[in-house]
């Protein structure tokens, strides 16, 4: 597993795609950060005019919007990270070689998945600079920052599992990325349908399986067992399906 993990990491770091994605991710999250800081500054100006002793809840107006924007970026970034994991091997014909290694499918999958997750964490680490910059101007609630990052990593891990699954279905990386994005958006907007009929039991079910409804509590600084278990179960579910897809070669012949 370790060899697969390091091999995947070295491929990522030696490929320009990773740097391009990371650069775009850093730039766009920087723009979100700048806009949020500018908005709070403008709000502060108004407060200074009309309510000189007023205070703000920075968690609500600064941290939460920034992390919500970053989580939206993750939805678009993760499919690009995950698209090559199996699709590239299939396109290059190296997947058969991989199957002949004295390593189980589970270990290969774990190696690839953890490599993708490490890349995602690397990208999120770039945004720590934003928090450092913020701390030079105001005092962020580090507890909320920490829980937001935990939430982003867990959500990213869940989306990555979807991406690995999509990548195992096709040898075309574009199709894999598009399929991942489509599936993620389905799990994202499913919560919106729940809001249209809040009283029905279907609505409760949709809320439960929506990715975004579980993210909301992390962004408020609240880590619940329910949300953590949801993301872990979600990831395990799609990773196990991926394993079955890989395993299907045995009975398909």
């Amino acid at each position: 597993m370790r060899s697969v993990y390091f091999k995947e990491l070295s491929i990522y770091f030696s490929s320009p795609i990773f740097y391009v994605i990371a650069g775009i991710f850093a730039c766009i999250s920087g723009i979100f950060f700048y806009n949020a800081m500018g908005y709070v500054s403008l709000l502060s100006t108004r407060i200074a005019q009309y309510q000189p002793t007023g205070a703000l809840v920075m968690n609500d107006i600064l941290l939460r919007p920034i992390f919500a924007d970053i989580s939206m970026l993750i939805v678009f970034i993760v499919p690009v990270i995950s698209m090559r994991l199996y699709a590239e091997e299939k396109a290059q014909g190296t997947i058969e070689l991989l199957f002949t290694y004295p390593v189980s499918d589970l270990k290969v999958l774990a190696g690839k998945y953890l490599a993708g997750l490490s890349i995602l964490i690397c990208m999120l680490a770039i945004t720590v600079v934003l928090m450092v910059l913020m701390s030079l101007i105001t005092t962020p609630d580090w507890g909320v920052v920490l829980s937001s990052y935990i939430g982003l990593v867990l959500m990213g891990a869940a989306i990555l599992s979807l991406g690995v699954f999509a990548s195992s279905l096709t040898k075309n990386q574009i199709i894999a990325a598009t399929l991942t994005l489509g599936l993620v958006l389905c799990f994202w907007v499913i919560g919106w349908f729940a809001a249209t009929s809040p009283d029905s039991s279907l609505s409760g079910f949709l809320q439960e399986i929506s990715i975004v409804s579980h993210q909301a509590r992390f962004l408020k600084g609240l880590i619940t067992l329910r949300d953590v278990v949801f993301y872990l179960c979600f990831s395990l579910f799609f990773l196990s399906i991926t394993l079955r897809v890989l395993d299907s070669r045995r009975w398909r012949g």
Partner: peptide, 30 residues
């Protein structure tokens, strides 16, 4: 109660929070 003090960005702070995350870091990655 809300406890966080409001802040108003100075011109230099405004430049820093724009240039560092939007230009400098992406450029370094590139």
């Amino acid at each position: 109660p809300a406890q966080d003090r409001p802040f108003i960005l100075t011109p230099s702070q405004d430049r820093i929070i724009f240039w560092v995350p939007v230009v400098v870091i992406p450029s370094l990655i590139m």
